[in-house]
Design a protein around this nucleic acid. Structure first.
Lengths: 230, 230
DNA sequence: ATGATGCTTCGAAAACGATCGAAGTATCAA
DNA sequence: TTGATACTTCGATCGTTTTCGAAGCATCAT
């Protein structure tokens, strides 16, 4: 198959509303079952199954069989990056007034994971606090951690040297937040910060969703260490 | 329209073989006429016209009217980035043996522009030379210019400070080369290096194509300044 | 075993989108 | 004005894709 045909095939896969919903649903990095994805996309199990098969064969998804469940996840960070780059074009003007989609997903808007970093009000608040304090500098495409930021992460016990050492991944970049319509911190630093929060019990995942809640302990640490007011 | 519908719409636009050809053809950053794009995609002018209209309305392309010609180009670097991220997934294994597509596009394989930086044998050679000499360090996602690299670019008259100052764009990153199946230098540095080569007459665009050829003068400078052997 | 759950395969109906011929508008060159 | 070129619009056709009901297979619980 020619390069161009493969290009079109990949893009076309992402170009169906049902499949697009599933891909977006997997953007938090977790693996979901076929049924969950079907419900998420608002289609029947049969339809979802066919979509999932096609996306797996094309290398977009990876499957893991566990008993009678089949867990689907994005096959690689490269897939997540493609999805994000499409999102960015699909995003309405950042200046558009934030339309509230209803109280149903208040928890998601408050805080959630976005592939491997933090998003929602939580993610944006942390990012804003870091920028305001001069620890971080975000452009449209890339970003940089300042010297004071490096010192801060070091004090917090996040080893930045280990991240910069293997330069296989971009250290610091912005990622457009769906609910807040503003950028939050992504890249290796964003991922490290997210796992740090999980590991220290600062945040907890709400059972069965991609939403996360901040524990009282986490609230204190985020305020004291990073100057985040939630 | 919901976010998800817009996401699917954008992806679907890139998911048609004809439109995919056009988008790829515009990846060198130039603006092409509707006829050129139609021929490139192997479709009639009518079909191309409808495709171009749709992509323009969706914000993927920008048009400029000049006499009876209409010049189409990618609407923004964000569009180029999306295309590249899809390309990356569509690319066959990098380990695959480089299949030669015929002598017809030998010039393109030798050297061409890729959106705003250099690609082909030329682009990869420069990148390799910089890496070998320890001026550059490229990972999968990101890259870094070493101190010796910064000094080298400064000596060559490329103002890196101006690029790092406005951090709105990523400075240095790899971009997968189609013909060489290996990464070449992209990002703000890649773009700066490319225009430097054009401005100093080191390379010249072959009339009506995205191919570039190295002038004798350029050959000498590239060898002496950057240690590139072509 | 028996029934329930999770998922896939098959097949047919329905919707959609790409394509191009034909005709129309706009610009250029005499 | 006349004819050529560049592009768009209209309309009809045709192939593809999506979709879901029905049925089948695999796993689990009892």
């Amino acid at each position: 198959m020619s390069n161009n045909a493969r290009f079109a095939e990949i893009a076309a896969l992402a170009g169906d509303p049902g499949r697009a919903s599933m891909l977006n649903g997997l953007m938090d990095g977790r693996a979901l079952t076929a049924s969950e994805l079907a419900q998420l996309a608002g289609i029947t199990a049969q339809t979802a199954s066919s979509h999932l098969t096609r996306m797996t064969e094309a290398g977009l998804l990876a499957v893991e069989k566990q008993g009678r469940h089949r867990y689907h996840r994005l096959a690689s960070p490269a897939v997540a990056q493609m999805i994000e780059s499409i999102m960015r074009l699909a995003a309405p003007e950042v200046t558009a007034k934030p339309l509230r989609t209803g109280p149903r997903d208040a928890a998601l808007r408050a805080g959630r994971t976005c592939y491997d970093h933090l998003a929602g009000h939580l993610g944006v608040s942390i990012t804003d606090a870091l920028i305001d304090a001069g620890h971080l500098d975000l452009g449209l495409d890339a970003g940089e951690v300042t010297d004071s930021g490096l010192a801060l992460f070091a004090r917090a016990g996040i080893a930045i040297e280990a991240l910069t050492a293997k330069r296989s991944r971009i250290l610091c970049r912005p990622c457009l937040d769906w609910s807040e319509r503003r950028p939050h911190l992504a890249g290796a630093i964003g991922a490290a910060l997210c796992s740090h929060c999980f590991n220290n019990g600062w945040i907890r995942r709400l059972e069965g969703t991609r939403a996360v809640s901040v524990t009282p302990n986490g609230q204190r640490h985020l305020r004291e260490t990073f100057g985040v007011s939630l």
